[in-house]
Nucleic acid binder design. Structure first.
Lengths: 350, 350
DNA sequence: AACACAAACTAGCACGTGCTAGCACCCGCG
DNA sequence: CGCGGGTGCTAGCACGTGCTAGTTTGTGTT
């Protein structure tokens, strides 16, 4: 247990028991605390000589400015909360892009990773307590397609993930355009039997199914929907289901890259040649798509562009809370790799 | 840009312009601020009726206790910093375990993910500014095997990752025991030509190579080291290198699961049967090892146990900074899946 | 009726910093 | 010699909460 050994009287001048404070730095140099404050914030009003000495003293004492005191006193916190999942590679990419982009705009992020033991119900209040000026939501509990209850009175941006109840700003990939790119790509390669392994009940899964069906009908083709989910396991299972058919489709469009890699690698390990026997395409251009033994044709979304757009949205709303909500749909681009090729001529049996 | 439109006079009584404060809650109920403080911290000294009314008022006003003010005033912060990488799946598992275990001990974590744009040099000072009482280090810049400079005068625990200069507490898997488990497993299956795909310059890679060599010699076998790294790409490349040989080894021991999956899936996609032609084993039992088309025999380390051990270490050092440093080596366990089997009789050519 | 005592509640300082205001000094000018 | 104005620096309050030390209220006991 922590012992109450802290000194009774005022801490000694040279080195207090606890961490060094601005006062300690000031005393060491022989100036006022305020001057140290100016120097460390790079504000004008201190001579070059003093600046130098203050910096040295701060470094010698191992001084780190106290963020708590800073945010408490400052008018603004310049902090944004982020709700996400560390298990989803593309979300990780987005968060890293957000970190960089936020720093460039003078904001810092408070990360609120969702976990089995830390659902939204616990994470969001914790973020709210940190004086965040806005909330960027990437994920919902259990990969659900909608978030439960978000605080009011604070700017919120949905980034790529689930939908929320109320009308909030919303930045995401244009699912419809992306799916259309993939279907058209496959059609141009002569494919007509194109199956879709869905994202199940995950975010945007429904929209992608509908986009797939629309694109197929536009090309005069019959939709072929196979229930799946946004994971490798689910993709693997979908492949197994396809393999029980008397005839395989000539192409599979999976709801995301993880699912696609599950489909592809399961087919390959069953001796089905990709893309000779069957083409497999994904969605996201996550790191898995670039693996040498995957080489997935997919649709790329730029995390940096998405992050930038999300930050523009939220900073704009912070400055003008009354502005109308916007829905930004980022145009994705097709990335052709080795997992797609011309449709096989005859029908190969499973 | 932020406009200085904040109200000049004191904010209105009912609903201030900014966020609700404890005072606002107190005014609404008609009690003192201190009493609200007691209620919200679940301390004794308030009647059940008052508790109820305070809780209701707080909820109605959307009140969230200000962490900054709390940390600033409180004697202790009960916060621990964590330096890690979001791209390494096992680190993510560890961080999630740390979040849970820390909460159970009354601590909260301040996450400091490393990024290309946010190296240790920037992340560590930012954590230090948050009043952390200790630092848990999982990763180093660029997957390097040692951390550069860590702050003094603060308890530090290395968890599974790189080594640091000074003598600090150190919790990690027993590499030697884990590698020995794998080699012995393969030997018992009749393997004699066992290659090792290394972790390159990554954390613990050197220790694993040495453990491999020692285990091989102990069984009277000749070590066969293939340079690689802790990634799927590197594993894939190592497999390509092996395939150029006139004869494949009968088993490959990869430095971690990511590398192993690269080896395995590349071999499979080249038509080599696993485990009929060659066995592949990994290290970590990360999520990839469980994928249906991978089914990797590997060595499991329990993230929860490691996290728990790390937290025990750091909390002990916080309470007694003079205690001697400890090096905890967690005993791993063998997980046999379908990627390993009896050694093939003859020598299959590549 | 006076007292002790716990329960319920309140008063005021302190945490480390940012912010506004102001002071002391030096310089050049009239 | 006084006056204006910039430069370098300091004084003191405020942020929202936790902590210590009270003060009032209610209840039972002598």
């Amino acid at each position: 247990m922590p012992s109450p050994l802290d000194p009774i009287g005022p801490p000694s001048v040279e080195t207090a028991a606890g961490r060094a404070t601005m006062k300690d730095v000031a005393d060491r140099v022989g100036v006022s605390r305020q001057l140290v404050s100016l120097v460390l914030r790079d504000l004008p009003g201190a001579s070059p000589t003093t600046r130098q000495r203050v910096r040295e003293a701060a470094s010698e004492l191992g001084y780190y400015p106290d963020t708590s005191a800073r945010t408490l006193r400052g008018r603004r916190s310049f902090q944004l909360g982020v709700v996400f999942t560390m298990h989803e590679p593309f979300e990780v990419d987005l968060v890293e892009a957000l970190l960089t982009e936020a720093a460039e705009r003078g904001y810092s992020l408070v990360l609120g990773p969702l976990t089995a033991a830390r659902p939204e119900r616990l994470v969001v209040p914790q973020l709210m307590g940190q004086r965040i000026e806005g909330l960027i939501v990437l994920a919902a509990d259990g990969g659900s397609s909608s978030v439960s209850d978000l605080p009011e009175r604070i700017p919120i941006v949905q980034l790529g993930g689930p939908r929320s109840k109320g009308p909030v700003d919303d930045v995401r990939v244009d699912d419809e355009a992306g799916i259309a790119l993939l279907v058209d790509h496959l059609v141009s390669l002569g494919h007509t039997a194109i199956a879709h392994a869905t994202g199940g009940s995950g975010p945007n899964a429904r929209a992608r199914v509908e986009a797939y069906e629309a694109a197929m009908r536009r090309s005069g083709l019959l939709p072929d929907v196979v229930e799946s989910a946004y994971t490798e396991e689910a993709g693997s299972h979908a492949a197994e289901v396809l393999l029980t058919r008397s005839e395989l489709p000539t192409a599979v469009l999976a709801a995301n890259d993880r699912c696609a890699s599950g489909v592809l690698l399961t087919l390959v390990s069953r001796g089905v040649a990709v893309p000779a026997d069957i083409s497999v395409v994904g969605f996201d251009d996550s790191s898995v798509a670039r693996l040498p033994f995957v080489q997935l044709t997919t649709v790329r979304h730029d995390p940096v562009r998405l992050a930038s757009e999300a930050l523009d949205s939220i900073t704009a709303r912070i400055e003008d809370p009354t502005r109308p909500t916007v829905a930004h749909r980022d145009a994705p681009s097709l990335v052709v790799r080795r997992s797609s090729g011309p449709a096989r001529a005859g029908g190969a049996s499973a």
